[in-house]
Design a protein around this nucleic acid. Structure first.
Lengths: 196, 196
DNA sequence: AGCACTCCTTAACATAGGTTAATGCAAGGA
DNA sequence: TCCTTGCATTAACCTATGTTAAGGAGTGCT
């Protein structure tokens, strides 16, 4: 089976696709590899690239005026990465996307995908539903956790949300995602009795 | 001018509407009043009500298992309030919406609005763009602020984002929105030299 | 082995923010 | 007027987290 066929069932988990629509969509994807540390999108880019992750992991991170980094999102196997605010508003990305480990992806132009919407309504429905779920619902959950839970609780949620990722990447990346310093994460792990 | 006509220019700020589409949409709205403290949507409701605020203010708030409140969003004059996750996923709302002051709204069914999308593509485009902007872009900004800025900075952002609201509602509502206690907000205000 | 490099941990101290409780103040009701 | 109620402030103390600095463990290189 061609690797691009891995995508279809994930899309159809949200809404059905016609064979015709899927055929047009599948043609947009081409395989690519990213070595650890290599960029997928840089802040400042007008890059509408969409990545479906075959294996490996990406992160989206932000750097503020003072140079502080924040790991906003991790993308693991079988998820989609795209600088969505950039594409939807047609402005440069304010996020960097890079590979946390050597990663294989299928890459497509999000704009060319949107160009298929008039022809295939089912595609628009699927993409909109994924956006609604991934961006609206999950963002709300994340906002609530940032406000209502302390770092130890957020660390527990991270472990649930990204099982196994913890052992593949340095802890300072996790700390940055939790909004704390690596020192504090180390204290939390010590209190929980995690020795590794 | 009928009050419902206030809505059209706000929508057309995002994308144009045909007279026909607007005519069908405008019929969905009926005026309503909410007294201070009155609920618009309760957690647990399957309520697809959409409110356009003529004057006054609403809030959306969340209560966690321990009973802690968090004021997630304020809705002021000329903005739209809807329990969006509830409507899009067809699940009960997990947020409460109530009136912070006596408020006049125009109320519609979000589902009936969506029912117009097949007939009027321009309506779907407008609504999708508003969703994308209000939920995706603004949520990302909020997430970054919660992680990267301390409470004093978040308070300054609040004052910019909701000018004038500070003087209409109790400070504990603001503190809850900032993710801090009223005591801490009072300290921040004291340090800034706000005497009122 | 010896060395450099990266990452994790720990300690000591500083700061932001939470908790509890007391005080003050303004508005409304009896 | 007096009392109550709701809200904001302040103080004293405590906890979570940041900062700085030091040390240790693993890995790869020469």
């Amino acid at each position: 089976m061609k690797e691009v066929e891995q995508i279809r069932p994930i899309l159809e988990h949200f809404a059905p696709l016609t064979d015709d629509a899927w055929g047009d969509m599948a043609q947009l994807f081409t395989p690519a590899k990213l070595k650890k540390g290599e960029y997928f999108v840089r802040a400042g880019d007008r890059n509408d690239a969409l990545a479906f992750i075959l294996d490996g992991a990406l992160r989206a991170y932000y750097i503020d005026q003072k140079g502080v980094h924040y790991n906003k999102t991790f993308f693991v196997e079988h998820s989609f990465a795209v600088s969505i605010a950039s594409v939807l508003q047609d402005i440069p990305s304010y996020l960097f996307f890079d590979a946390l480990v050597d990663t294989r992806i299928l890459k497509a132009s999000y704009r060319r995908l949107m160009d298929l919407f008039p022809k295939h309504r089912c595609l628009e429905t699927v993409v909109r539903k994924i956006l609604e779920y991934e961006w609206i619902i999950k963002k709300e959950q994340r906002e609530l956790r940032l406000v209502m839970n302390d770092a130890a609780e957020r660390y527990a949620f991270f472990q649930e949300e990204y099982p196994g990722l913890e052992n593949k990447i340095p802890q300072y990346h996790i700390a940055s995602h939790l909004g704390i310093t690596p020192i504090q994460l180390s204290r939390i792990r010590a209190k929980k009795g995690i020795t590794l």
